[in-house]
Amino acid sequence: MSVFDDVQNYKSEGSHLVPYPSGAVIPQRDLGKTPVLEALHLGVDFGGLTAVDDFSLVVGRTEIAGLIGPNGAGKTTVFNLLTNIYQPTRGNIMLDGYSTAGKTTAQLSHMGIARTFQNIRLFSNMSVLDNVKVGLHNNTPESLLAAVTHTFGYRKWERQAESRAMDLLDFFGMADLAGEAAGSLPYGAQRRLEIVRALATNPKLILLDEPAAGMNPSETAELMVNIRRIRDTFQIAVMLIEHDMKLVMSICEGICVLDHGKVIAKGSPDEIKANPRVIEAYLGKKKEDGDHAEG
């Protein structure tokens, strides 16, 4: 009957969502701590077109959150708003309790947000190791003079960065690829490297834009394990856009459904699966063709 039928067997983590002020829900274990993300009534217009309207969402500190919706619903636009690649026309974003208004994307990265892209955007001419080291830029400032003169402190930083980068690569089983050019890696490895690079910036919240796109079922299964490992190991929040409903329903705790730029449902996987508005958004109203459900 619905696109969610084949995922009914997948059990979600069973984390208990609790109400949070402003009508949101977050996992119970994150209650009492500042949410990593609070978006309030976000909206953006392009010319006369409203791409996203009245988007509100709260993500707990260690939550795995999902953002789903049919094609063109505005999911990636929300990610672009959260990273200030687009400036919101309306509304506020609080990252770890601090407003992101007026910040540049680079400053937001320092504040603790990182993301991957729907179409992989690695620095493909640079080595795998250098890609991760660019991500590590965040952690320590370097004076230009030190860089030029190769002082002791600079070399020490390079050594530390290198070992940290190798640790991160090792965590994802990619240490042996460190010297390769990023652009020459197989597709799945490029997707993984993009996540490693994002993690290198030491984020509090990592946004994954369709991390399973183009992956086969076994790669997707591995990805799900990795997303949980990221959350458990680094104790950070993960928010993902994904069309693979098995993945979303089995690892996300809170799910937000967008359609035509508006939030049409929020809740646990079970609530989302049962929500008639969600099913309608994906399949269209009865008697209509259900083709645009793939997505």
Binding site: A106, L122, N125, H137, R197
Partner: peptide, 16 residues
């Protein structure tokens, strides 16, 4: 080098 390859991705790495 990162900025020359992809400005947005570089910004997201915290590079101004």
């Amino acid at each position: 080098r990162a900025v020359s390859e992809d400005k947005e991705a570089a910004e997201l790495m915290g590079i101004s």
